[in-house]
Each structure stands twice: as C-alpha cells, then as structure tokens.
C-alpha cells in the first residue's frame, strides 16, 4: 500500500487508463498546467494536447463536447473545476448527458465521467464551496460517486469509464491534503457497494465523503460512553447500496445520516425516507438527518465552521436518539 492524496491517486489512475485506452481523453480548464488541484499532473506532457484538452471558460460547450464524444465512441473525462460551476452547464448535465441513453431506448451508451470538486471548510465562499451531489443524484440518468479516500477516488474513476451511464464524481477539497493508503495498481471500485467502516450495535450512521472522518471521530467518542455506532460510507449515491443500509438498521434499530449536502430535499432526506419506508418496524427512535443549515455556505471562518457539521453535533444527535425510547 502507498500513501496518496486524492489528486495524486486520480492523476495516477488517469495515467494508467490513458496509457491503456486511446479512447480516453481529458477536457476542461487549466488542465495543461496539471489541473488546479494537481489531478492532471504530468498528463499533458505525456499524452499531448490532443488528449489533454485545455479549454476556454465554456462549461456548456466542453461538457456538451464530452457528451457528444461519448456518444461517438470516446471515453471523455470532463473536469468541472468546482461543482458550483455545474450551474453554468446544467442543461448539458440535466438534459443532454442524463437523458440520452434513456431516449435512445438504451441503445446509446455514455461512458462519460465528469470530475468535479466540492466542499466547504476553506473559506472559498458560497459559490466555490457547495456539495451539490444531491442535485445531481435527483436527476434520473446520472450516476453519482462521492469518494472519501484516495483509493476510492481512483477506483471509481476507472469503473465509471466502463459504464453505460454518465457519472459525476464529486471529490471533496477538504480531503485533498489527506494521505490515505491505496494499492498502487488502483483497482476499480464497484458502484453501489457501501463500506462498513466500523461495526456497532446501537446506531447506523451513514456518512458521505469528508463527513466520513467526522463520523468516525464521533463514533470513537460515543464508544467510550458505551454506544456502538456502525459507520457506513455509501461510496456512491447512485447507485445506492440500500441493502447494506437497511441490513444495518435492521440490526441497530436506529438511523442517522451525516451529509454536507442540502438540508432540504437532499440525500439526507432521501435516506431517511428510505429507512422509514423500508425499515419502519425496526426503528426504535426517530431517524436523524445531520446536515448544515439550509443556507448558502458562509464566508467568515467562524460562520463556516459553525455551518459545517462536526463530531460534537453528531454525538449530540445520537445521544438524543438514544434517549428517545
């Protein structure tokens, strides 16, 4: 195993897939310099400008180009620098990428990967800090992955390039400086297969991307108080490993979700809804959705810190749930 950051692992995975498959190409802004976070490091030098395509600031056009190229036998990796910019090209995402396979009756495949970054915590303000994977996940026809570590970021990218549906991979900027262990081969990671990161008998806690370490810290603290928290990283939001989540809730009888996405109508609400509908009789307490408040991401460090869920909030929510008998 090798210690790698997410950008390092993604760059290495791109080196591997581009060397193996001439159909793969990268397109986006500032890729020639290696990408603003380094996830395209060394690719332009190795594969040239025809396969590492630097673009003007034209998300609508270059995402659409990726879609059309995918429909014509290529495997594009489109980089949208921040997921906030998906707003610029939302027609191409919501109408063009998401719907083509369905509209073709399943005859057209789109092995298209959209890599983007997300996440609050670095003072980037409201338009460079969102975590809007729930928005993408609400569009039928898109696949959505939210890696919490370097091996998953690389392995999900590889799997995504082999599938028939467009995939949006949301990489959390807050994890970019963290080294996590990865097999240097960076094997493909399956979609729809959750990871149970910690076993526990009392509460099932699903946590997404940068919320995974927060969940693990909270579970550590709660263990000292005798509360067993089972922490599940869903890895992909669509497809979602509903079986893993429901099996855990059947065991624990309590459910919480920790999600940096939308407080209203987002992934947290979708998971609570799933658990209530499918595991109602197992529940010993009302489920908890732990999200930021329903506001844009604030700029001031103190406000941003308060906005982001932390381990203390998770612990409080779970302790309340344990009292709710």
């Amino acid at each position: 195993m090798k210690q790698m950051t997410i950008p390092q692992a993604v760059a290495e995975a791109l080196h591997q897939v581009m060397a193996a498959d001439p159909a793969v190409f990268l397109i986006g802004e500032d890729l020639a310099m290696g990408g603003v976070f380094g996830a395209a490091k060394g690719l332009k030098e190795r594969f040239g400008p025809a396969r590492v395509v630097d673009t003007p600031i034209s998300e609508t056009s270059f995402l659409g180009l990726g879609i059309g190229a995918a429909m014509s036998g290529m495997k594009p990796v489109v980089e949208i620098m921040f997921c906030d910019f998906l707003g610029v090209c939302f027609d191409q995402l919501m109408n063009q990428a998401a719907k083509m396979r369905f509209l073709s009756g399943g005859t057209v495949s789109l092995p298209l990967v959209i890599r983007t970054t997300m996440g609050a915590g670095d003072g980037s303000g409201a338009m460079h800090s969102q975590s809007n994977y729930g928005l993408a996940a609400s569009v039928a026809g898109l696949r959505v992955a939210c890696p919490s570590n370097s091996a998953d970021a690389a392995g999900l990218l590889k799997t995504a390039l082999e599938g028939p549906d467009p995939v949006v991979i949301f990489e959390h900027k807050g994890l970019f400086d963290v080294e996590t262990p990865a097999d240097p081969e960076l094997p493909p990671v399956p979609f729809g297969k959750a990871r149970t990161l910690r076993q526990g008998a009392d509460v099932t806690l699903v946590a997404i991307a940068a919320m995974v370490p927060v969940a693990l810290a909270a579970a550590d603290h709660l263990a000292k108080r005798g509360i067993g928290v089972e922490v599940i990283d869903p890895v992909t939001i669509n497809p979602l490993d509903r079986e893993a989540i429901l099996a855990s809730v059947a065991k624990t009888g309590r459910f919480a979700v920790l999600d940096e996405g939308a407080a209203f109508a987002g992934v947290a609400d979708a998971l609570v809804s799933l658990v209530v509908r499918e595991a109602f009789r197992s529940l010993k307490a009302a489920p908890a959705a732990i999200t930021p408040p329903h506001t844009p991401v604030p700029y001031a460090p103190a406000l941003e810190a308060a906005w982001l869920p932390d381990a203390a909030r998770v612990e409080a929510a779970i302790l309340k749930m344990m009292e709710d008998v």
Binding site: P22, A50, L65, G68, A69, M71, S72, M74, P76, Q96
Partner: peptide, 21 residues
Amino acid sequence: NGIVGGQVPLAAGAAFAARSK
C-alpha cells in the same frame, strides 16, 4: 434535441471523436 441549441455542443463532441480517430 428538445432544448434549443442543446445539440450544438454535442456535434463538437462528434467532431472531436472523428478527429481523434
């Protein structure tokens, strides 16, 4: 295409694929 102009970037993708091939 059901979206006015939505098809134009897609054609750029087909052109890109032809050039790559």
